[in-house]
Simulated assay, not measured.
Amino acid sequence: MRLFLEHGFEATTLDDIAAAADVSRRSLFHYFGSKEEIVFSTKADFPALVAEAIGRRPVEEPLLDMVENAFVELAARHISEPARNLARLIQDTPALSAGDQAKYEKVERVLAKALAEQKGRSENDLECRVTATTAIGILKLSTQAWLAEPNTGPDTFGKAAFAALRQVVSQTSGGRE
């Protein structure tokens, strides 16, 4: 990751990475099929972290609160300057930003399943799926806001986005959530 951050994703070669890791290029290919896989391996545990954070939420908590509070917890525990640098690298590198969408899709599926399990519902529960899809949209927006505003965390925007969503729901449903 240091090489990617210092020299840029495109300028860093697999030979550079192998040399820095003190392994052969062949050994590097044993573990990673591409430079993209190297970057995304640093975030491979994120879906499990999301599921674990949902699992720690009280069962009686409403779905939106459950997701918002889990995301705030994750931000408090895992947001750092290296995480911001990695997020910026992914955002600013077209080859990585495309692959990042696949990560979000996986997190969305894991989140919907975790919500359903926590609530004792079917894995295909529509409310859990809609909540997960919406929450991932908020997560994406929060990450973009965090990268644009260096003095804030993604949780700041996330809380505001969840509040805005509740306001929209309240206006359109006559106060039902």
Score class of each variant (00 low, 15 high):
Glu6Met: 00
Glu10Asn: 14
Thr12Met: 04
Leu14Phe: 00
Asp15Ile: 12
Asp16Ala: 07
Ile17Asp: 01
Ala19Asp: 14
Ala19Ser: 15
Asp22Arg: 15
Val23Arg: 05
Arg26His: 09
Gly33Thr: 05
Gly33Ser: 11
Glu37Ala: 15
Val39Asp: 06
Ser41Pro: 02
Thr42Trp: 12
Lys43Asp: 01
Asp45Glu: 06
Pro47Asp: 09
Ala48Ile: 03
Ala48Ser: 09
Glu52Met: 13
Glu61Phe: 03
Val67Lys: 04
Glu68Thr: 04
Ala70Leu: 04
Phe71Tyr: 11
Val72Phe: 12
Leu74Trp: 08
His78Leu: 01
Glu81Ser: 13
Ala83Ser: 11
Leu86Phe: 08
Ala87Pro: 04
Ile90His: 02
Pro94Arg: 11
Gly99Glu: 06
Gly99Gln: 06
Leu111Phe: 01
Ala112Val: 07
Ala114Val: 02
Ala114Arg: 02
Glu117Lys: 10
Glu117Gly: 06
Lys119Thr: 05
Gly120Asn: 07
Ser122Asn: 10
Thr133Gly: 13
Gly137Ala: 04
Lys140Ser: 05
Gln144Glu: 13
Trp146Cys: 02
Leu147Trp: 02
Pro150His: 06
Pro150Ile: 03
Thr152Cys: 10
Asp155Trp: 11
Gly158Trp: 03
Lys159Cys: 08
Ala160His: 05
Ala161Leu: 06
Arg176Trp: 09
